[in-house]
Computed example of a mutant assay.
Amino acid sequence: MFSPQGPSLRELCNQAFSSVERGYDLLAPKFDHTPFRTPDSFLGATADALSDLGPFDHGLDVCCGTGAGMAVLRSVCQEGITGVDFSAGMLAQARSAHPDATWVRADARALPFTEYFDLAVSFGALGHFLPAERPALFAGVYRALRSGGLFALPIGAPPPLTSVSHWATLGFDVAMRVRNAIWRPPFVMYYRTSPLPAVRDDLTAAGFTVTAVPLTALGQRRDGSPRCRLILARKPADPTDARPADDPRCCAHG
């Protein structure tokens, strides 16, 4: 699972018994050599799907980590691209890899942007938010988007009950719940707390119009259903909004 350049078992243990922010600060220099980084296949499939919906002007990667999602934004956005994360260590790696992008350190549950971006994406971050925290996350993304803006995030289908992946993710989530019950600070990372129906409902409650399209390039399950869908959450267009595309209604550039 890990390349020789990845973290050692001791380093992973140090991360696991830290807070989420501190844990990712520690992991940041070796994060891209772990299986936690979003695979290029997911990024490419997302970029291909968004290419039919764009082009877009300004793009935002929510919980950007080391910046893997910048390749998606760069392929479909004509103007500036921005990444936001609350780990200074992850942002340092992202800034080094993508010096032409804008980087903002902030808590995704309180995004400091207002009606600036045409497209927002997020990859593999929902497990870091408890279900009760998703409304604040989605409300912030909604606020950050311009009228008619789009929020896109891929969500994989749950693994079959008889698969190794099912029992591995279940075991991981149980272990994390035990860890968080007996150890502080908590480390929030769960694989099974963001099913598609619940995410769809929370996005709808935030004001988005929600659809989902299959990412066919990522294959199908045995029953013929897609292995992954791309959620497309659209902020309704305001017919009175005729401001120019470069209107900088963004309260944080860093």
Results as ranks from 00 to 15, higher is better:
residue 119 L to Y: 05
residue 122 S to P: 08
residue 123 F to V: 09
residue 124 G to M: 09
residue 126 L to A: 12
residue 126 L to F: 15
residue 128 H to F: 09
residue 128 H to G: 06
residue 128 H to N: 14
residue 129 F to R: 01
residue 129 F to E: 00
residue 130 L to I: 00
residue 131 P to T: 02
residue 132 A to H: 11
residue 133 E to Y: 09
residue 133 E to W: 05
residue 134 R to F: 04
residue 134 R to E: 00
residue 134 R to D: 03
residue 134 R to Q: 04
residue 135 P to E: 01
residue 135 P to V: 06
residue 136 A to E: 15
residue 138 F to R: 06
residue 140 G to H: 13
residue 143 R to I: 10
residue 143 R to D: 10
residue 144 A to T: 10
residue 147 S to Q: 05
residue 147 S to F: 13
residue 149 G to Q: 08
residue 149 G to S: 11
residue 151 F to Q: 09
residue 152 A to I: 13
residue 152 A to T: 14
residue 152 A to V: 14
residue 153 L to I: 14
residue 154 P to N: 08
residue 156 G to D: 05
residue 156 G to V: 08
residue 157 A to E: 11
residue 157 A to F: 10
residue 158 P to D: 05
residue 159 P to V: 12
residue 159 P to R: 10
residue 160 P to M: 01
residue 160 P to L: 01
residue 161 L to D: 14
residue 162 T to E: 11
residue 162 T to C: 01
residue 163 S to M: 03
residue 164 V to R: 09
residue 164 V to G: 02
residue 165 S to T: 00
residue 166 H to F: 15
residue 166 H to R: 10
residue 166 H to P: 00
residue 167 W to T: 00
residue 167 W to C: 00
residue 167 W to M: 00
residue 167 W to Q: 12
residue 168 A to W: 04
residue 168 A to N: 12
residue 168 A to D: 03
residue 170 L to Y: 02
residue 170 L to S: 08
residue 172 F to W: 15
residue 173 D to P: 04
residue 175 A to Y: 04
residue 176 M to S: 10
residue 177 R to T: 07
residue 177 R to M: 03
residue 178 V to P: 06
residue 178 V to H: 02
residue 180 N to C: 06
residue 180 N to I: 11
residue 182 I to S: 01
residue 184 R to Q: 14
residue 184 R to S: 14
residue 185 P to Q: 07
residue 185 P to F: 12
residue 186 P to Q: 14
residue 186 P to A: 15
residue 187 F to W: 11
residue 189 M to H: 15
residue 189 M to W: 09
residue 189 M to S: 14
residue 189 M to A: 14
residue 190 Y to E: 08
residue 190 Y to C: 05
residue 190 Y to P: 01
residue 192 R to A: 07
residue 192 R to N: 04
residue 192 R to F: 00
residue 193 T to E: 05
residue 193 T to C: 02
residue 193 T to R: 12
residue 194 S to N: 11
residue 194 S to L: 02
residue 196 L to D: 07
residue 197 P to G: 09
residue 197 P to W: 07
residue 199 V to L: 13
residue 199 V to S: 04
residue 199 V to K: 03
residue 201 D to Y: 00
residue 203 L to M: 10
residue 204 T to E: 09
residue 204 T to H: 04
residue 205 A to K: 12
residue 205 A to R: 15
residue 206 A to W: 00
residue 206 A to I: 00
residue 208 F to I: 05
residue 208 F to N: 07
residue 208 F to A: 05
residue 209 T to L: 02
residue 209 T to R: 01
residue 209 T to M: 09
residue 209 T to N: 06
residue 211 T to W: 05
residue 211 T to E: 15
residue 212 A to K: 13
residue 212 A to C: 12
